Amino acid sequence: MKTIVITSQKGGSGKTTLAAHLAVEAERGGAGDVWLVDTDKQATLSQWHSRREAETPGKLDVPFALLPKGLQTLAAQNAAYCFIDTPPTISEQSKAVIELADLVLIPARASPADLWAIADTVEIVKQAGKPFLFVVTQAKPQATITAQAVAALSQHGRVAERFIADRVTYAAAMTGGRTAQEIAQKGLAADEIHALWLVIISCFNEKIVSRGVANG
């Protein structure tokens, strides 16, 4: 099982939206059983999950102290992926979660405040010796600041080649316990999530089923 931790010191960067959308995309792509963990006291991911009509992805509910054991249980049950959402601050709890990661996703908006907050997050991830990937979120594709953000982030590490644009579709879908690709399978948001998932998979050098076509 691969554990993907989504973390950022800056609130509003889109961590929960990424966790929900990527978990659904992983299952839609045939990855296998996918699970979610919500370690944020605001419990936004948990609220989204409670509104879902679909039974998947699953959600692991365990006390934080038992999270490592819970992940071991999922792995023993042949779960494929577990996405962990984290609070909008870096704490000792966040550091402990990062230690459990096989890959850390660091979402960042193309804004000075987000970029200023990146350094501390990156330092903690590097200290843990974990591979990480930046994901630009709520981006305006043609805006100069988006390109500037990519350039700034790339000085610290790899930036996902596909970013998540600022689209109403994401928020609208989350409100009803769904994801953008479930509402509009061939929409622009669905294409973004699918492309981002392929980038994430490439970090693991695994083969997946890409809308009916095997990719390596």
Rank of each mutant, 00 (worst) to 15 (best):
Q72S: 15
T73F: 09
L74R: 01
L74Y: 05
A75V: 04
A76P: 01
N78D: 11
N78R: 14
A80Y: 05
C82V: 13
I84T: 08
D85S: 12
I90W: 05
S91C: 12
K95L: 13
V97K: 10
I98M: 06
E99D: 09
A101R: 01
A101C: 10
L103F: 07
V104N: 01
L105P: 03
P107H: 10
P107Y: 03
P107L: 14
A108M: 10
P112H: 00
P112R: 01
D114A: 15
L115G: 05
W116C: 14
W116N: 07
A119D: 05
D120L: 06
T121N: 02
V122P: 00
Q127Y: 12
Q127M: 13
P131Q: 09
P131D: 02
P131E: 00
L133A: 10
V135M: 13
V135D: 10
Q138C: 11
Q138Y: 11
Q138N: 08
A139N: 05
A139Q: 09
A139E: 08
P141G: 12
P141R: 13
A143R: 04
I145M: 12
T146V: 12
Q148E: 06
Q148V: 08
Q148C: 02
Q148Y: 01
V150M: 13
V150C: 14
V150D: 07
A151S: 08
A152M: 09
S154R: 04
S154I: 00
H156F: 15
H156P: 01
G157M: 11
R158K: 14
R158E: 06
E161Y: 03
R162C: 08
R167P: 04
R167D: 01
V168H: 13
V168E: 14
V168T: 11
Y170F: 15
A173K: 03
M174Y: 11
M174P: 02
G177A: 07
E182K: 14
I183N: 15
A184F: 14
A184W: 12
K186L: 10
L188H: 05
A189N: 05
D191P: 01
H194N: 11
H194D: 09
W197V: 08
L198Y: 08
V199P: 04
V199G: 06
S202R: 15
C203V: 06
C203S: 10
N205Q: 12
K207L: 14
V209P: 04
R211I: 07
